[in-house]
Amino acid sequence: MSKLLITGCTGFLGGCVLSYALKKYNIKDILILSRTAGDYQALTRVQDNLARFGLSPEITGQLTDSNIIEGDLAQPELFLNNPCLNEVTHVINCAAVASFGKNPMIWKVNVEGTFAFAKRMSEVPSLQRFVHVGTAMSCLPEPGHNIKESLITTDDSEHIVDYTRAKAAIERKMHEELPGLPLVIARPSIIVGHSELGCKPSSSIFWVFKMALTLGKFMCNLQDKIDVVPVDFCAEALLTLTESENVKNGVYHVSAGPEYSVNFAEIDEAMAQAGGTKPVADSYSMVDMGYFMGIRKSFPTLFGECNERIILRAINLYGQFSRLNVTFDNTQLLHLGVSAPRKFTSYIDKCVDSTRGQSVTEMMACDFK
């Protein structure tokens, strides 16, 4: 690896990727795209995020301003002329507005800014690989199936949220308009927690399971499967996709697949055991959205101080995803030598322990920015 550029390093996945890269590569060979936010300097933002993954100040302190390309995909014109980009041989693009809310920056960053960045990198003679992080949900999977990788051809209007719509659009745009870009698409399934740290780095998505079990009712069948992977598995997979000479195909699922996915009944049992409570299986019932509309006034009692409208939106969005009952085939990835992912239920106790005392409303803030 001559010169690796990682974006999104102040986020959940990008931070984990960087934490692994720092252990694996010479620190002088790593560049990081990051922005300054007010008085919060880019380098400090990166170092503070790395601390959430358990990296010591001795390790994070080795990073200097020379590792930073200051920039923001919301304003790519401010950094695309940086001469350091001409030295880059490999890119892992984790940067995105990862929100299921109605964030006006989703299209600007995830499509427009990302394309401008990819176009600039396609013009760098030394570039050998550009790994772009998408999402498995961008392909609009057919319910009840094990989904294999393919290029996206679906209609944008069919997407449930702007985030997956934008992720599908940028994949198509790069494929169609940048034929010279050495592009590899990595599509993680549902990233929840860290297999050793639980939800210390981020509570993203985990709160959905806690919310559903608190309600005792949701929009899925307890026997439905869900494809969940820990962030550290994703980070290791992305580094493999970046450096492996055996990467041939353009699209890879970073997923649990049918063998390592779990169903909601198993999640219920594991969370109850970790929390010292009883599973809700015996009293659970599958309901539609109308039920939750009818009990919205009880949300503050169940979840603490909250915005009823946002809770309802979350139930509707994640409820639709939960009842898909899909897995994403990971055969191609495992053939590259990536270790099999740990099942969600094998580290769910760490997620429970690391979120004790946090309300659902507090945990969900990271997904509704």
Rank of each mutant, 00 (worst) to 15 (best):
V360Y: 05
T64I: 10
V338Y: 01
H159Q: 13
S126L: 09
E269P: 00
S122K: 11
T153R: 11
F79K: 12
S2I: 06
S346A: 11
L178N: 06
F303H: 08
S56R: 14
I68M: 06
V161C: 10
K28S: 14
H253I: 08
K108S: 00
C220N: 13
Y163Q: 08
H253V: 14
H145I: 12
P201S: 07
C306T: 08
A21D: 04
F292I: 08
E176S: 15
M1Q: 15
Q223T: 15
Q41F: 03
M137H: 14
D329L: 13
D282P: 05
D155W: 02
L241C: 04
H90M: 10
Q358Y: 09
G290S: 12
N67K: 14
I348Q: 07
C94L: 05
S283C: 02
H253T: 09
P76L: 01
K210I: 06
I267D: 06
R45N: 04
P83C: 02
M211Q: 11
P188W: 03
E123N: 13
V287C: 10
Y291L: 07
C94M: 07
R323E: 07
F117P: 14
L324C: 01
I185N: 05
G113V: 04
M174V: 03
V231L: 10
A281T: 15
N49Q: 07
L183M: 09
A314F: 02
L333N: 00
C139H: 15
P179R: 00
I152T: 13
S157D: 15
F117C: 05
L181P: 03
A168L: 11
F12Q: 03
N249C: 15
H132M: 06
V97P: 00
V91P: 01
M364Y: 00
A272I: 06
R45E: 00
A166G: 12
S99N: 03
F100P: 01
T36Y: 03
V133D: 01
F233Y: 12
L239V: 09
K248E: 12
C94E: 01
S99R: 06
L43K: 03
T60E: 05
E245M: 03
V360K: 04
F299R: 13
V338I: 07
A118H: 05
W207F: 05
L302R: 14
G193D: 00
S99M: 00
L302D: 13
L181S: 01
I310K: 11
Y163A: 07
R45V: 02
Y347M: 08
L239P: 14
S354D: 03
R120S: 14
I311Q: 09
N330P: 13
G71I: 01
I190C: 02
S122Y: 07
L239T: 09
T301M: 08
V280F: 00
V184D: 03
I348V: 15
G337C: 04
D288A: 10
F344C: 11
L18T: 02
